[in-house]
Design a protein around this nucleic acid. Structure first.
Lengths: 198, 198, 198, 198
DNA sequence: GATGAATGAGTATTCATTCAT
DNA sequence: GATGAATGAATACTCATTCAT
């Protein structure tokens, strides 16, 4: 791994790469984005990419980490507030989901791309596992809190399922932004979740 | 386009290609599977692939069509039986989902792969649209039948959501067959669906 | 080399191949014509081609030989008549050239194609040399007869040049049949030749 | 399209490619020259070819353009001098033709190759048409100037014919450099042209 | 650190030729 | 002899990565 660069100009280059790559990966996907595209769009040279990152994968993984962290932070923040205020389930659901969607939207296909490589690349598998666990724990915290009202007997499985559902819906909405009524889907999804509340 | 081959040996080769390609595509994905790999694994020559199929895409699309058709047929069959017997929602759900999973399992990542190419390839988009519509119609038939009990105000959105949920869970289970308790997930999912029944 | 087949059906197949291949080679050229195209167009199987001919080249060469022979025969016939009747140069020129064009037209690009392969393939070189010599001899006979009136000091070179001129004009006319006034070109060429008569 | 490279090393590589490709194309023809051959002979990598040129065709077309331009420039220069000095036809012919041959020799089969692809490739057709027109115009200028002495009634056709004759003779001489007396052919051709002068 | 030209292994695809039936 | 499915060497082109400047 490259050391974290300290100098200012270097940091700027690094940021340019990350920002540009995020956009391209999120829009086109990993394989459809070439390193030359990133360099060109970022206004730097291909060589520069390799002084900051070991390879294309590393860029992807770092972006993904940042993204996952942002989502998790958002969730934790919300969850804490909800639990503190001891909100009602339905209010909580109505609160959390639209916000989660907004954050996920920022990185479009990232999650989906990662999953493609889990079986192929060990680094991808490692990153995925780490975050999946954290996400599931967070959902678990939520589910455990509202367990009874949600009539859930196996919270672990429920957390996994919920996570999958959220991801698939967000990915779908991202891909079909122009043809689909986002709000209708989101609110129907919320309604479906609320339906299962006792 | 190649004619459907009539002779026996030819048909055998064609089948070998389809079967091998299905396995490889389902396991590794489309781009990670090379035509040389298919040929080698099928015990035939690269050239042979191209006397049966126009290109790599055609193989993929044919496999996908067969798969989608099988799933749809299974669903239609079940749905007809359910509607005829005027079964209770929960019984119906408990009946359909495990079966759908078994069929989807056969082709692992196929669906997921297709979706990657929707924006890139016109043929992929066409196939996807065609089947998506049929699947949604089928789910709609189900939802409309049990509409009241399921407390659904926007059946179109609900069908879309349901379809996404099923796909994402099945894909997840396929990818994690060895590390995850399939049955637990499936039954928790069924329970979650049943929960929303009035 | 394959023996000349004696049986009737075999002969028919052979002819079908030759006729079809001639059309395709003359129209598309050698490399642009595949053996599968020939077989399909001739209504026979690819394998059949190889029981009558050693390879694709052999077909080409045989067609070319037949064509060259036809042209030479036509020339000899005309030349004999001209010399017997002791015709006037200009009459002779006006007589021979349009006829030669008609025959050459039949085989469009054949000559041109052959020349491409002279340096690459020894068989092509051999065929070419053989016929080139015969053609030059024929032209020489003509030039020698009218030598004085044509004011030619080096008949060998003149024969070569004349041969090249004829071929290039015929090839050009074949390729531009639709855009060009054949008759205008042919008659201008005749006029140019007659101009040089004393 | 690739930008015209500015850096020195890049320019050198580009030149290496052009020079090597010119030799190979002129000697073997377009299809018989593979991109790997060019790379190997130029002492560079295949990839390099594609950072300088869009595809194999582009190299060919660029070489051809350069060649055609050189020939046309040479012709224009000569023609201007001839017309200014109001030279006599025969002197003019004796002056122009040997020079034209020398230039054409440099690129051997290039012209001939181009013509093969006119019907197949739109880019080839475009290049060909462009230069053919310019060449014909140049010949027309010549023919119109000496029209009366040359006894030409249809200058357009004559220009076309002359162009074809020149090309075919030059191509022939290039291909048979070792077996044929170039000078004899060239001077016989000049004599034939002069013969038709009134 | 930055540059961008150069690298070359890897990919889908074609097509003359073979050979079991 | 005829068939046509099978073969596999060969080709143009891509793109992550390297390295001299």
């Amino acid at each position: 791994m490259k050391k974290t660069p300290i100098q200012k100009r270097s940091m700027e280059t690094r940021n340019k790469i990350v920002i540009t790559a995020r956009e391209l990966f999120a829009e086109k996907g990993f394989e459809e984005t070439t390193t030359n595209m990133i360099a060109k769009a970022a206004g730097i040279s291909v060589g520069s990419i390799y002084s900051h990152f070991k390879d294309k994968w590393e860029i992807f993984l770092i972006i993904l980490e940042e993204h996952k962290e942002a989502i998790l932070d958002y969730g934790t923040m919300n969850l804490n507030r909800i639990l503190e205020q001891n909100q009602d389930v339905k209010t909580a659901i109505n609160w959390i989901i639209p916000g989660l969607y907004e954050i996920n939207k920022l990185n479009g296909k990232l999650n989906h791309e990662l999953e493609r490589f889990i079986q192929v690349d060990a680094r991808a598998a490692a990153v995925h596992e780490k975050w999946e666990k954290l996400e599931d724990q967070q959902l678990l915290r939520f589910l455990n809190h509202y367990g009874e009202q949600l009539n859930i007997s196996d919270p672990e499985s429920a957390a996994t399922i919920l996570n999958l559902q959220l991801r698939s819906i967000f990915y779908y909405l991202f891909n079909n932004q122009e043809d689909v009524d986002e709000k209708a889907i989101i609110s129907q999804f919320i309604r479906m979740m609320c339906n299962s509340v006792k």
